[in-house]
Amino acid sequence: MKRLIFTIIICITACAVFAQTTADSTHTDSVTKKKVHVKLGVGDDAPSVSNEPDTAYHAHKAPGFSFGVTFSRIDLGFATLIDHGSFTLSPNNQFLSYRQWKTSNFGFDLVQFGYRFNSAFKIYVSGGFDWTHIRLRNDITIQRNTPVLTYTEDDINYSKNRFSSSYLRIPLSFYYRSHEDASGNHFRLVAGPEIGVLLNGRVKQISDENGKQKFNDDYHFTRLRQGVFVRMGYGLMGIYAKYYFTDMFENSPAQEGLKNFSFGLTVGF
Score class of each variant (00 low, 15 high):
182 A>I: 15
185 N>C: 13
206 I>F: 03
1 M>S: 15
121 F>R: 08
100 Q>W: 13
210 N>I: 13
177 R>N: 12
76 L>T: 02
37 H>A: 11
96 L>F: 03
231 R>A: 00
186 H>Y: 07
62 A>T: 08
10 I>L: 13
137 R>V: 14
72 S>C: 09
161 N>C: 07
129 F>T: 11
259 K>Y: 10
102 K>V: 04
70 T>R: 07
151 Y>P: 01
114 G>F: 03
21 T>S: 12
138 N>Q: 15
40 L>R: 01
223 R>L: 06
33 K>L: 03
235 G>I: 00
14 A>E: 05
42 V>L: 04
154 D>F: 01
63 P>V: 06
147 P>K: 02
157 N>M: 13
23 A>S: 14
180 E>C: 03
200 N>P: 07
168 L>F: 15
267 V>C: 03
184 G>W: 01
218 D>R: 09
228 V>Y: 10
67 F>K: 03
109 D>C: 03
43 G>W: 02
101 W>I: 13
3 R>C: 01
5 I>W: 09
259 K>D: 04
165 S>I: 02
30 S>R: 15
100 Q>H: 11
268 G>V: 02
265 L>Q: 10
179 H>M: 06
16 A>W: 06
80 T>P: 06
83 D>H: 11
104 S>F: 15
215 F>K: 14
220 H>D: 10
173 S>W: 00
110 L>A: 09
189 L>H: 03
136 L>S: 05
35 K>Q: 11
267 V>G: 00
201 G>W: 05
49 V>Y: 10
171 P>D: 10
29 D>G: 13
100 Q>D: 07
142 I>R: 06
131 W>I: 08
209 E>I: 09
104 S>N: 15
195 I>D: 01
172 L>I: 10
71 F>D: 00
119 S>K: 08
84 H>V: 01
221 F>D: 04
230 V>Q: 00
230 V>L: 04
205 Q>P: 06
169 R>W: 00
223 R>Q: 12
252 S>F: 04
23 A>T: 05
91 P>V: 06
198 L>R: 13
137 R>M: 13
119 S>D: 14
16 A>H: 14
266 T>E: 07
152 T>I: 00
251 N>L: 05
121 F>H: 07
